[in-house]
Simulated assay, not measured.
Amino acid sequence: MDPESSEAVILLVEDNPGDVRLIEEAFSDGNIANELHTITNGQAALDFIYRRGEYADAPRPDVILLDLKLPRVDGEDVLHEIKHHPELEDTPVVVLTGMNEDLIESYNLDHDADEDAVLKKPIDPLEFLDVVRSFEGFELAVLRAE
């Protein structure tokens, strides 16, 4: 997180506008100050993390929210690139998925899962906020209610 800013830089890679809206509302309702960058396909996500083309000046995210089912480049491929990028390998990643719980558990057991958390869609806003707040250093982005 930028020490001069109280806002967290969040990269949301999600192609479903309804899920984007739910996540935006969860941040707003949870009083999390953020600079949210929404990307709707895997290729654009790779361009963002490698700072190519229109994303040449993209900031480094504090947290990445990643859907696994993406157009153009699959979310699993994007996750692999994130976790092998020297500047992003330690960045928390929350995988967003529509898989049922048995498939999620199977996925985590059968792969060297590099994500830091997996949330099932539809996203429960309170569970989502608890997961995001659990990342070390991210608590600085939570605004204190007066």
Rank of each mutant, 00 (worst) to 15 (best):
D67K: 05
L96C: 09
V20S: 10
T40A: 09
K121F: 09
F128G: 03
A8P: 09
P3F: 06
D15I: 00
R51A: 10
V131Q: 14
L36T: 10
E146F: 01
P59M: 00
E87C: 00
S134A: 11
T40Y: 04
L109H: 12
N41H: 15
L12K: 03
V93Y: 13
E25F: 09
N16Q: 12
P59W: 01
H111V: 07
L126A: 14
R51P: 05
V20I: 15
D62M: 00
D112W: 08
R52N: 11
F138M: 12
N31C: 02
D114S: 10
E127V: 08
S6E: 11
P122C: 05
V78Q: 08
A45M: 05
V93T: 12
A8F: 02
E89V: 09
S5K: 11
D77P: 00
L129Y: 11
D15K: 03
V131C: 11
D124P: 08
E139W: 07
K120T: 15
I32S: 10
G53C: 01
I32K: 06
L119H: 09
R133C: 14
R133F: 05
V132T: 07
E136P: 10
D124L: 03
Y50H: 13
D112S: 13
H37V: 05
P92V: 00
N16G: 06
L79P: 04
L143K: 15
G137V: 05
D112N: 13
I104Y: 13
Q43T: 01
L70Y: 07
A117T: 04
D74G: 06
G75V: 00
Y107T: 14
L96K: 07
A141V: 12
S6I: 04
S5C: 11
V94N: 03
E101A: 13
H80F: 14
E115Y: 15
V132L: 03
A56D: 05
R133W: 12
L140N: 11
V63C: 03
D57L: 06
E146S: 07
D110Y: 09
P71F: 04
I123T: 03
H80G: 04
L68N: 08
T97E: 10
D114L: 12
R144P: 04
E25L: 15
E7C: 05
L46M: 12
G75S: 05
D2E: 10
A33P: 00
D57T: 08
H37Q: 11
E136L: 02
E89M: 13
V9P: 01
L46I: 13
